[in-house]
């Protein structure tokens, strides 16, 4: 986007740009698209069922870096499963979304985790477990502690959100971005990894951060 071009030159040395692919996974109708929509437009609307995948981008200007999130919002129906691995390939982060009013959806999120663990090494991907729909508190089936406990046991980020009432949506994406940056600092002394092509990324996009 335009800001990126302007940020070039000497500024870039101080403030590198990182591009991260973030994939939203979870059962159908847990609110993946609504979370993305809330995050992008700060609004809530009834989403259409996602067929395949939809895409969003968000640019975060942080103190130490500019982070560009490429958000892949995938179809939730289990039948699409065999197509879905197309989508999480090369992801830097994943949000495993479940619906706090539907226990089964947490089980499904755990299955997604298993699958991701097959595909990625532990430090290759940042994973957040997200319990959505806190606005439906009276219909809650999954206690906060249950999600939290599971997330802790697998060292995942955890948050309960409501796309509808705008609860902690920004925060969860921000937490993911911060953790990505932190890993960046830990794994590579010189800012290289996300800036160019990630070795783990099968969809190589060379130098697109400078476009």
């Amino acid at each position: 986007m335009a800001q990126e071009g302007a940020a070039g030159g000497s500024l870039e040395r101080h403030c590198p740009t990182y591009i991260y692919k973030v994939v939203l996974l979870g059962s159908t109708a847990v609110g993946k698209s609504s979370l993305a929509y809330r995050y992008m437009k700060n609004d809530f609307q009834e989403s259409l069922p996602t067929v395949g995948c939809s895409f969003f981008t968000k640019i975060l200007r942080m103190e130490s870096a500019t982070v560009k999130l490429e958000i892949w919002d995938t179809a939730g129906q289990e039948k699409y499963h065999s197509v879905c691995h197309l989508y999480y390939r090369g992801a830097h982060a994943a949000l495993l979304v479940y619906d706090i009013t539907n226990k089964e959806t947490l089980g499904r999120a755990k299955q997604w985790l298993k699958e991701l663990e097959k595909e990625f090494l532990h430090d290759e991907i940042v994973i957040a477990l997200v319990g959505n729909k806190t606005d439906l508190a009276e219909e809650r089936e999954v206690p906060t502690e249950e999600g939290e406990e599971f997330a802790r046991s697998r060292s995942l980020l955890f948050a309960e959100t409501s796309a509808k009432s705008n609860h902690q949506v920004k925060d969860v994406f921000m937490a993911v971005a911060l953790q990505l940056l932190q890993r960046e600092a830990e794994t590579a002394p010189a800012p290289r990894r996300g800036q160019h092509v990630d070795l783990g990324a099968s969809r190589a996009r060379t130098g697109c951060c400078r476009v």
């Binding site: 995948c53 895409f55 981008t57």
Partner: peptide, 8 residues
């Protein structure tokens, strides 16, 4: 456009 913008 680049990848993500085309996809979008």
């Amino acid at each position: 456009m680049d990848f993500i913008h085309i996809a979008q």
